[in-house]
Design a protein around this nucleic acid. Structure first.
Lengths: 136, 136
DNA sequence: TATGCACCCTGTAGCAACTACAGGGTCAAG
DNA sequence: CTTGACCCTGTAGTTGCTACAGGGTGCATA
């Protein structure tokens, strides 16, 4: 299949597919006589793996390691689990951080009663950290 | 005060301060005879405003708008409230998204029972979206 | 006086993970 | 034979910094 078809099949921007090839995440496919990229099923499933992992928030480097593992079925699976677990912990930390931030923002937003910027509580709160309830 | 002192006072990297000046977020300060930047209190509080807003996740462009507002006390405060409210909604959306992702990841991570990568459930789940419980 | 050291300057390049052109070639349909 | 959809390469932009390289300044100490 040509790149446009692969793009539709995996819901991935064409430029992104070429980018993945350039950084060595996807192997360079064969070319047609007209120098068009020609992909097979192996490419499609590898790209699906990449997209799915990206959707789950894995970095390119993490995905590279995961792909290495899946390319070599004899290796220890624990490594994949370690990568995924570490990532899960990062996501949980991020959620906790965003939640604290959300609470602070909600407090700030609730203070506006209209009027002029000169005595705006929102702007005042942003300027002075001491208005905050918790560290962030 | 010199840039190093401002850096310590606001817990901001020196390079970041110069960067903010370059993009017009902080006004260019006076210079000493030796061409060193020389800051006053107005700079310090403006930079604190910027840092605090960044900590709360506002983009540079949002901060630019908020600074414009606070520079012009006669303007309507509602705009500041709109920016902050829109940002709050984005943060809430991000938390929701990360929470869904966290659940999916936790499900995937829980499946590894060690062994070889060839039959690793983690790698399998990453490769095939159909293993997922919800859209993401 | 020399010299070491902390600090400051400019300008440019790098990071992640794409995205968006510019400027060209290919190919099937009408 | 031309229109339009598709493809190619290569480069530059995005966000918000961070990290040099290569130089100047200012003060204390030997």
């Amino acid at each position: 299949m040509k790149i446009g078809e692969l793009s539709r099949a995996t819901d991935t921007n064409i430029e992104t597919i070429r980018y993945y090839e350039r950084i060595g995440l996807l192997p360079a496919p064969d070319r047609t006589a007209a120098n068009y990229r020609s992909y097979g099923d192996a490419h499609r499933s590898r790209l699906s793996f990449v997209r799915h992992s990206r959707d789950l928030g894995f970095t390119i480097e993490e995905i590279r390691s995961l792909l290495d593992l899946s390319d070599d079925p004899a290796r220890d699976c624990g490594e994949a689990d370690r990568i995924a677990t570490a990532h899960l912990e990062q996501v949980e930390a991020k959620i906790a951080q965003l939640t604290a931030l959300r609470n602070e923002l909600a407090r700030i937003v609730g203070r506006c009663r209209g009027g002029l910027a000169g005595d705006c509580r929102v702007i005042e709160a942003l300027g002075d950290h001491r208005h905050c309830e918790s560290a962030h």
